[in-house]
């Protein structure tokens, strides 16, 4: 199964490279416009490459399951973020080369006297800088997530539209019907993609609403929200996966947030999400009333025991609300009567804030489960692990095995914890392919 995902992963990287370089490759076909000096052509090539990468950002964030399955949603979103810097560099160097080698082009910066092609180009670059800045410093700028998401979508669309306008008005590389067809196809593909994301997908969700069954408090300032499909059969998911939830209004709303399932995958007719109160949106979960409508777009993610059927045992390392996907996996394995050995290393602030503490104790009766609590502020008589999960704790509690690929390790929690755990596992010589993590706080 892993080999299958590796092949798919390489395939999509190849497709991405092909799509990203397609404008450059196709522009070389057919009759070429009159050649100009190297730096001007290099500048133009970088502009086309930057536009191509920016357009592909819409594909990366369109939540295509086939695209995310080989890597995991967090990798795709992180790549979306990192490739922005590459595209931004290309796009910024595009005019800079012109300014350096043809200083007369500096006059194009004067938007009052500049031709429309330059106005479109300059505005696109300025808006792209705003878009990137808003994403990098959203928290510092105190921009609320939902508001940021709306503006992120609007700005991205305007930037690409202006950039295409810039290309069309510049005309230099639209000298043959083939190249004109390329850009028309490119435009249709892009508009079609936007229509799919903004119209078709929400419309399909509209026909598959869910209703709130219950909202129950959990330890650790968290709430378990249970929803049932209304007049449809719902969907199957793998334990450990997540979905995007939109509460009330309509699925066309931009106010949607990703949460892991905490319920058993063997009960798909009832989905539970356990959500910690961390921000404006999560604080509203407790106010939901039974019967209220929510929309669930999922499942997504590759973080699941079901992707590793060959494993002889599993280790789960969770911090705080990172227990949610682990709980879904544990509940599912209990439902299935799975007897493979399981180790859960679970870090929390104190004994009272351990979400699912009692249920974990009960699960030890039905599963071959060892739970290791790690407490930052343990009670006076605590003789268990203290502080943060570190290499020494991992060494003490990880099952010993000299066979790679037989113990699969899942990590979910705050980023510093995940970094420390991954470093610890690496130091202990655990093969990179044997541990898995997924994180979502990217902006």
């Amino acid at each position: 199964m892993r080999k299958n995902y590796v092949i798919k992963g390489i395939f999509w990287i190849f497709v991405y490279l092909l799509l990203a370089s397609a404008p450059l490759l196709i522009l070389l076909l057919g009759k070429m416009p009159e050649g100009r000096e190297f730096w001007r052509e290099f500048s133009v090539a970088l502009g086309f490459a930057g536009l191509s990468l920016m357009s592909l950002q819409f594909v990366l964030t369109a939540r295509f399951k086939f695209l995310k399955a080989p890597y995991g949603a967090d990798i795709v979103y992180h790549f979306h973020r990192q490739i922005t810097f590459v595209a931004l560099a290309f796009i910024l160097v595009h005019p800079l080369l012109l300014f350096v080698f043809s200083p007369d082009t500096l006059a194009l910066l004067n938007l009052i006297t500049a031709p429309w092609r330059a106005r479109a180009g300059v505005t696109a670059v300025v808006l792209l800088l705003v878009l990137t800045g808003m994403s990098l410093w959203r928290r510092k700028m105190k921009i609320e997530y939902t508001r940021w998401r709306i503006w992120h979508g609007i700005l991205a669309t305007v930037v690409v539209a202006l950039a295409v306008t810039h290309v069309v008005l510049a005309r230099h590389y639209l000298n043959t019907p083939l190249k004109q067809t390329l850009w028309i196809t490119y435009g249709i593909f892009w508009v079609g993609l936007l229509a799919y994301i903004r119209i078709l997908k929400p419309f399909l969700l509209l026909k598959r609403p869910y209703r709130v069954e219950s909202v129950l408090p959990e330890r650790g300032n968290a709430w378990s929200l249970t929803v049932r499909p209304a007049r449809h059969s719902g969907f199957h998911f793998m334990p450990g996966q997540f979905a995007w939830i939109t509460i009330g209004n309509s699925p066309f709303s931009e106010s949607e947030h990703p949460f892991s399932f905490s319920s058993s995958a063997e009960q798909p007719e009832m989905l539970t999400f356990t959500i910690k109160e961390l921000g404006d949106f999560t604080r509203t979960i407790k106010t939901l009333q039974p019967g209220q409508v929510v929309y669930v777009d999922g499942p997504f993610g590759h973080f699941s025991v079901d992707r590793h059927p060959h494993a002889e045992q599993f280790v789960m390392i969770a911090g705080g609300v990172g227990i949610t996907p682990m709980m879904s996996m544990l509940r599912t394995l209990a439902h299935r009567g799975d007897k493979r050995p399981l180790t859960l290393i679970y870090a929390n602030r104190d004994w009272e804030s351990i979400t699912f503490r009692e249920e974990l104790e009960r699960l030890q009766d039905s599963l071959t489960l060892k739970v290791v609590h790690v407490l930052e502020k343990p009670p006076a008589n605590w003789d268990g692990e203290k502080g943060y999960i570190n290499q020494a704790i991992l060494e003490r509690h990880l099952p010993k095995s000299d066979k790679p690929n037989k113990i699969e390790i899942f990590i979910c929690g705050p980023q510093p914890m995940m970094n420390a755990v991954e470093q610890g596992l690496s130091n202990l010589g655990i093969p990179f392919g044997d541990y898995h993590s997924e994180q979502f706080s990217l902006v």
């Binding site: 370089s21 450059l24 522009l27 790549f79 490739i83 690496s426």
Partner: peptide, 30 residues
Amino acid sequence: MRQKFSTWLAVFIGIVILILAIAFALLQSI
């Protein structure tokens, strides 16, 4: 650790496209 993969992938794709852009410019300007 996993994020390093996407960072290096972005760098790799950036380099490949940069090489293509240079080749494009060379072909056009010769």
